[in-house]
């Protein structure tokens, strides 16, 4: 790009930053107090942590669609096809692999804790899924897990399970009158079930974003 055009773009973006700052400075206070509304309805949400209540109950629709978006992104990546591996082979590293094998079960344990903790303190399906995905990436880099060129049937089912469970619970609410409206007495258990499904599926999907690639060629046969 031309030098003057670049300077013009930079200046325009600086003006935008100042305009944004001015707008935010002058913004009147919000007319609705959302934190108070959330706190007022927390007792009927089925969980005690407000963020989890918003995610899985009050604004469950957003979360449902977001899980769908994530699944579609992974499908897009698998559809784009694996590019041939260009990087040079890594020699197998027994120390790294041993460490990964040791850490992975602990990370699954941490994910389980985060899932359980989400009901009453910071944590929940998303953070648990992130830890699961990190375990997947670690295992892939260390060697034991291979890339997905063609996910098998079980894996595909596990990827879709979270979205399907969430959708099923959402549709069950239709019998009550509205989509995603949980029966009061069952809200806590239903949210935990949805979160458990989401943790597995989101964890696999996030790991899949890294794993849906080419094989890392190995230097020599592994023993």
């Amino acid at each position: 790009m031309n030098r003057w055009a670049s300077v013009a773009v930079a200046l325009l973006c600086a003006v935008l930053a100042l305009a944004l700052a001015w707008a935010m400075w002058d913004l009147p206070p919000a007319p609705v107090a959302l934190p108070a509304q959330v706190a007022g309805s927390l007792a009927i949400s089925g969980v005690e942590h407000p963020v989890t209540a918003v995610l899985l109950n009050f604004r469950g629709y957003d979360t449902l669609l977001e899980v769908g978006v994530l699944l579609i992104a992974l499908l897009g990546m698998l559809a784009a096809g694996a590019t041939p591996e260009r990087m040079t082979a890594l020699p197998p590293d027994p120390v790294l692999e041993g460490l990964a094998r040791l850490l992975a079960p602990l990370m699954v344990l941490v994910a389980g804790y985060l899932l359980w903790a989400g009901a009453f303190r910071p944590g929940g399906a998303f953070q648990a899924a992130a830890v699961l995905a990190a375990a997947g990436v670690l295992l892939r880099l260390a060697g034991p897990v291979t890339a997905w060129t063609r996910p098998g049937r079980v894996l595909r089912l596990a990827l879709a399970a979270g979205f399907v469970v969430f959708l099923a619970v959402a549709v069950l609410g239709l019998a009550q009158g509205a989509m995603l409206e949980y029966p009061r007495a069952w809200a806590g258990s239903l949210i935990l079930a949805v979160e458990a499904g989401l943790t597995v599926s989101l964890g696999l999907t996030l790991a899949g974003l890294f794993l849906a690639g080419p094989e890392i060629p190995r230097g020599g046969p592994r023993t």
Binding site: L114, F126, Q127, A130, V131, A134, L206, L209, F210
Partner: peptide, 17 residues
């Protein structure tokens, strides 16, 4: 909640990718 997700996803997973 966001801090946990940002550290694990925003920095960790995006960084690896």
């Amino acid at each position: 909640d966001i801090a946990l997700a940002e550290a694990a996803i925003g920095a960790g997973l995006t960084g690896a990718l």
